[in-house]
Design a protein around this nucleic acid. Structure first.
Lengths: 249, 249
DNA sequence: GAGTGGTCTAGACCACTGG
DNA sequence: CAGTGGTCTAGACCACTCT
């Protein structure tokens, strides 16, 4: 006797279709503006009632819409409709504030801390350092219209920029290097890859542990080709669009 | 009477910790090489038994490792350890095959189809077209070591490249344009953003519907500054690392 | 046909937010 | 304190792959 082959399990049926169907209804409401940018969606439990589904299923749907970049969540606060992406050009150095204003948004920068540290392996590799070399690290969070979208770790060689920590670090690091230290840039290299944010980084961005993100790692060289500093930038994956113009090649 | 407040629910306990703990065990096995690149992980049910957890939970853990880029899945076939990322420079045109060989991998290209179509909105916007303009579309899938990692849609103005469909389209489009049509490139613009693949694109990449991906959209201009063609490239999010060198700016 | 992942249910407790 | 998302259970059926 298979007890479970009853009316109950038949009613559930429908299989694959449900998830996609609910997803497209929600997508429609976002497109139509019923749920508008920056506003909170109804709670998961409310949506469960409306669509007569379980929380696990609904959670899964929301995660897929998050992956799409249509909505985002703030840890334990709710789900929100994603605003238009911030357009970012990694080749134009230090223009976060200017770009934001040009795009009609309100930029913000918060310095989390500054310290002399042994950098993580990826930074050692990028800067071609020995295992014990210590660097100055500045950690910042940048926001657009009060929403944190970028967590950055700056690393540089402390001897090259003496007294760095005494300056206002909430502005463009590039400008600081140039105006205070008379430092001019030469070559730059950057890497971009999808990743996930965990631990502290997730906390600073107010996203759930393990949320998708876009990592942009940049290495700056001086005019005489020496490695000088680098950034690790973790962008909320739904908040950024990278755009680069390249002259004739 | 609250029936559920029994020994059973207490035993479950542990709360938040479980997921993270199991995740780090699996991560360790990948780092240690117990699970090696390209090999299948034990089945979800086996892992459930081993860690004494439910399939939903284990599935969630695997999805987080996927977001991290450590593992990937092939739809209904299983979970696999991700190989090293393919390094890609969007500014060097048409070097997929060459880059792959340089990185010691075996490249492959399959042409899915070729047709004259009305392009999707994003292409119309990129190429600045009217709503009824038709374009030639070529769809291809590119692989590294037999693993499909890139799904591309090429769009170009058919009048500019007559007889295009009669050529071998499994090679570099850039070379074809240059060698057959004597076409040389000027400016290029590209956009990069995290997104999700659905529908056909997911099928071609053999990933589950709604998997994360990296979209690279490129627009090519001729030397006299006219828009000529564009690509929409959907990369498996765990399979690519974009690297760009920029000369002094 | 056996095995796999994909989807789904109907609950439960936990950690945190915000009034 | 009520409400939210985050995590978790112990099952079930479905769609597909592989042999």
């Amino acid at each position: 006797m298979i007890e479970s082959g009853n009316a109950e399990s038949i009613r559930r049926g429908g299989g694959t279709g449900r998830l996609k169907a609910i997803k497209s209804v929600l997508r429609g409401r976002i497109d139509d503006g019923e749920y508008t940018a920056g506003k909170r969606l109804p709670s998961e439990r409310q949506l469960c009632d409306e669509f007569e589904t379980s929380r696990v299923t609904l959670h899964e749907i929301l995660i897929q819409l998050e992956t799409d970049g249509l909505i985002y969540r703030e840890d334990r606060r709710g789900w929100f409709v994603s605003p238009t992406r911030f357009v970012y050009n990694p080749q134009s150095r230090g223009h976060f504030q200017m770009s934001a204003s040009e795009q009609g948004r309100k930029p913000g920068t918060v310095v989390i801390d500054k310290a002399i540290v042994v950098p993580p392996p990826i930074v050692r590799e990028l800067l071609d350092l020995g295992p014990d070399q210590e660097l100055a690290r500045i950690r910042r969070v940048r926001s657009i219209n009060e929403r944190s979208i970028l967590y950055v770790e700056h690393y540089c060689i402390p001897e090259v920029f003496p007294g760095l920590f005494d300056h206002d670090l909430s502005v463009s690091m590039t400008e600081l290097y140039r105006e205070v230290y008379g430092f001019h840039y030469g070559r730059m290299k950057y890497r971009i890859m999808p990743t996930a944010v965990t631990g502290e980084a997730a906390g600073f961005l107010r996203v759930s542990n393990g949320s998708p993100a876009l990592l942009v790692a940049r290495v700056n060289h001086s005019i005489d080709e020496r490695v000088r500093d680098c950034d690790l930038e973790y962008w909320r994956h739904d908040a950024v669009l990278i755009e680069v113009d390249v002259e004739a090649g």
